[in-house]
């Protein structure tokens, strides 16, 4: 009895492991498919541009007021906490490095991707699932419109562009908020502040931040699309698809963040 239970347990774990591995392989081959199309000129036409334009509008422009408010609040809070703490322990010389290496390189992409994932990933996931249930994907197939080119590619590009641009915007907000905060509360002149930032900032950090944002942007759109297409013909499959998609999006965000923390210093050393 105990033996059969144990066997079942092991079998269960094995099944889950295989399933995860297969799912990961699927995701990777799907990513490859989309990446390959990214660089295929024939994939682009005015219809794709239209979708791309609309998607950037929904993902990056519509969210701007909320995004800027959140960015300003987070920046002021973090700059304040970091500055005050460094002052209290007498290590204010680390203000610049922390602002660049922690706030701009880590917090800006992470907070941006979280906001975009909350708003747009869920929307894209639901949209694709609804299209699947409504047989609209079938329509595209019938009219020989490539689903990857028309539906997925512009969304993925929009995701990458939006996350990268919004991260840059977040970084600018951090720099400006830091300037105002340190001027008011730490009696730091703008000249000193900029000198501190420039001393700590390296081009590699900024490139790493941009690449990380692009990877975030790619996955937080690719994963919901993939899960959206897994919906069946039933309406009830929509919430299930969205739930799976969003859980996987958050897992992907955490994995990318951790990987970036491991890989970036290694590449930095190599360079």
């Amino acid at each position: 009895m105990i033996y059969s239970d144990m066997l079942y347990f092991v079998e269960n774990i094995g099944g889950k492991g295989l399933q995860s591995a297969l799912s990961f392989k699927d995701a990777m081959s799907f990513s490859y498919l989309i990446l390959a199309r990214l660089f295929d000129r024939r994939a682009y036409n005015s219809a794709v541009s239209m979708v791309l334009l609309n998607q950037i509008y929904f993902t990056a422009v519509q969210i701007l007021p909320l995004f800027l408010t959140a960015a300003i609040c987070l920046s002021i809070a973090f700059v304040g906490i970091i500055g005050e703490y460094l002052l209290s322990i007498g290590l204010f010389s680390l203000f610049g490095p922390l602002l660049v290496n922690f706030m701009i390189a880590e917090i800006a992409p992470f907070a941006t991707v979280l906001l975009i994932a909350l708003r747009s990933s869920s929307a894209i996931n639901a949209e694709i699932a609804v299209m699947k249930v409504n047989k609209e994907l079938n329509t595209l197939e019938v009219f020989q419109i490539d689903i990857i080119n028309y539906l997925f590619l512009p969304r993925v590009i929009a995701g990458i562009v939006s996350v990268v641009l919004l991260t840059c915007l977040f970084a600018v907000v951090i720099v400006v908020c830091g300037l105002i905060y340190s001027g008011f509360f730490f009696n730091m002149s703008a000249r000193d502040y900029i000198a501190t930032l420039l001393e700590s900032a390296g081009f590699f950090d900024l490139i790493a931040m941009t690449v990380k944002s692009a990877v975030f942007g790619f996955f937080i759109v690719m994963i919901p699309i993939r899960h959206g297409t897994r919906a069946t013909d039933e309406l009830t499959s929509i919430p299930v698809a969205v739930r799976h998609g969003m859980v996987n999006v958050f897992i992907a965000i955490v994995i990318i963040e951790v990987l970036s923390l491991v890989v970036t210093p290694m590449i930095s050393k190599l360079i």
């Binding site: 299209m131 329509t139 019938v142």
Partner: peptide, 12 residues
């Protein structure tokens, strides 16, 4: 050029 319930208009 198919006109069918199986190929509906794109709703968005």
């Amino acid at each position: 050029g198919l006109v069918s319930r199986e190929a509906p208009l794109i709703s968005n």
